[in-house]
Nucleic acid binder design. Structure first.
Lengths: 190, 190
DNA sequence: CTGATATCATTTGAAGTATAATCATTCCGG
DNA sequence: CCGGAATGATTATACTTCAAATGATATCAG
């Protein structure tokens, strides 16, 4: 499989799980590789969604979050869709220029911008299918419900593990830790 | 979990999420949501990698693919790293401007550009761990080998189902012995 | 040989994404 | 009340990513 051409290098570097000589060390790289391909597929499909419905995946996600709440602030919406505020601004710009949302400066706290969906935006939100991109949807069709569930769990756990880490520690600390690991070839068993 | 705010809407609005009979329900949405968070985490980590090693994740992936082949064309490299040609050009531009790779017009077929790593590029490729981003690496550390494997299988199956693989059944062999070549610092250009 | 077609690399244009810096406003301690 | 810290939104900058259009070259049919 494709990941192998990188996995080999990993072994040489003495990275993680040195448990299996020559074999077991490349799970993480396999995963990264798979993720990159999934990223690409999702991105490509988002473009198709855009061609069909004049709205991209991320835009639809944001619009749905806004419709759902009737009115929110940018920061609040950003948290909801797991995007940074600055990213969200760009998405909101595009949604606004399409007339799907509205921005109004809050009267109480003039720093805030209240964001709400226009009737056009609400209509689109109702009419447009979920931002589940086509290829992913097709892939899901081929899985049993149990498999879908386990796939979801698998990914969600990954998200948990990644997210939980990030909150608890200073970024510098974790980087230093990783550097140390490079040299030690420390067994990465939990 | 965060995916709920969308799953809820689904029920409410009677959306049947392309995957078929209503009850396959939120699995796919959970998955899409998880994927988006993973995308974000990988992206954020790529920035940390860049801060530490002056090279981003995608750039390093491309550089590794180039180093490994000694010399290749843009199209060939693109297939190898699962990127579109137009995407690759940008990455190559940055690698070239950092002096890590070299571009030379092929003499036999003047349409082609032979891409090869400079000694500086090779050195960096050997020295830099691998493009496994930090947060993902940490997440992996917390999983048993079995869990890592099942996670990898899970993602790879998804990739397979999505058909993201059909594009590249290219030659991914003769990779063994990559580091041997790297260590020898053999400059031979075949 | 010539014109049509295919292939390779690149450019163009657009979107998504992040961090860091900036601007405006609010809040709060003295 | 005032000045600095905190907060919300945005801008600036940079990178990744794609499809579509372009330019240069090769290949092939006639």
């Amino acid at each position: 499989m494709d990941a192998d051409f990188l996995a080999e290098k990993e072994d040489e570097m003495g990275h993680s799980d040195a448990a299996g000589p020559g074999q077991s060390g490349h799970h993480d790289l396999r995963i990264l590789n798979a993720i990159r391909q999934i990223i690409r597929a999702v991105d490509i499909d988002s473009r198709k969604l855009a061609a069909d419905h004049q709205i991209t995946g991320p835009q639809l996600m944001c619009l749905l979050a806004i419709v759902e709440q009737d009115s929110t602030t940018a920061i609040e919406a950003a948290k909801r869709v797991h995007l940074s505020p600055s990213t969200l601004v760009g998405v909101l710009d595009r949604l606004e220029s399409k007339g799907l949302i509205r921005r109004q400066r809050s009267t109480e706290d003039r720093r805030e911008i209240r964001v709400s969906a226009t009737s056009k935006g609400k209509a689109l939100a109702v009419r447009t299918p979920f931002p589940l991109q086509y290829t992913l949807a097709r892939a899901m069709e081929q899985l049993s419900l149990d498999e879908q569930d386990s796939t979801a769990q698998c990914l969600e756990r990954l998200v948990d593990l990644m997210g939980a880490r990030e909150m608890d520690q200073g970024p510098m600390l974790e980087i230093i830790g990783l550097h140390a690991r490079q040299r030690e070839a420390k067994p990465s068993v939990r």
